[in-house]
């Protein structure tokens, strides 16, 4: 087996890809504050794993996998969720985007269970294939297919109730 080689630095990766990861995090959580927490948690985990993450073929896929699994697990380790006392109180609350009232599907996407939401976001925002989503979710492609199908069925049903 060949010795692995490195590509890029952690800082370069964060600067280049954090915006993309943040958008994915927001679409999964539906709230800016939670998306920021999720992104930070994922990037800290990524930093810890960077010596290995930086030598895989696609660090972003690795980072996305961390992000998605952290989101789906629904629970972060206590060290990430426990409040830390700081010298300066945290930032003021941030407003979520003022979205157009004409958006009808987005509120329904947010109401989906986490795994279904993740599949929808990765498929229709991230443009990932079923096998790529399966890789990110650590499940079989068939599971992605059935999860997506269930999510779309729920969305259609919810849309029908609205209309």
């Amino acid at each position: 087996m060949a010795e692995s080689t490195r590509t890029g630095s952690f800082e370069e990766f964060v600067l280049a890809r954090s915006a993309s990861l943040y958008r994915t995090a927001y679409l999964m959580t539906g709230r800016r504050a939670e998306a920021e927490d999720l992104l930070q948690t994922a990037l800290i985990k990524l930093y810890v794993a960077w010596p290995r993450a930086s030598i895989v073929a696609a660090p972003e896929a690795y980072a996305r996998r961390v992000l998605v699994n952290t989101f789906i697990s629904g629970r972060r380790p206590a060290r990430f969720t426990r409040e830390r006392l700081v010298r300066i109180p945290p930032d003021l609350a941030v407003d979520d985007p003022d979205l157009d009232d004409r958006l009808t599907l987005w509120p329904l996407v947010v109401s989906l269970p986490p795994r279904q939401r993740a599949v929808i976001v990765l498929r229709y925002y991230g443009g990932l294939s079923e096998s790529e989503i399966a890789h990110a979710l650590r499940c079989a492609p068939g599971t992605v297919k059935s999860t997506a199908s269930a999510a779309l069925r729920s969305l259609r049903m919810l849309m029908g109730e609205l209309r």
């Binding site: 952690f10 920021e36 229709y124």
Partner: peptide, 30 residues
């Protein structure tokens, strides 16, 4: 779905507030 998710994503700031030194400090502590 494609259109709405893209619309929502575009409404976000172009760059999240991320402090690389802060992440590295937290990562080292981690």
């Amino acid at each position: 779905l494609r259109i709405e998710l893209e619309t929502v994503a575009r409404a976000l700031p172009s760059q999240p507030v991320v402090s690389v030194p802060g992440l590295e400090r937290a990562g080292r502590r981690e």
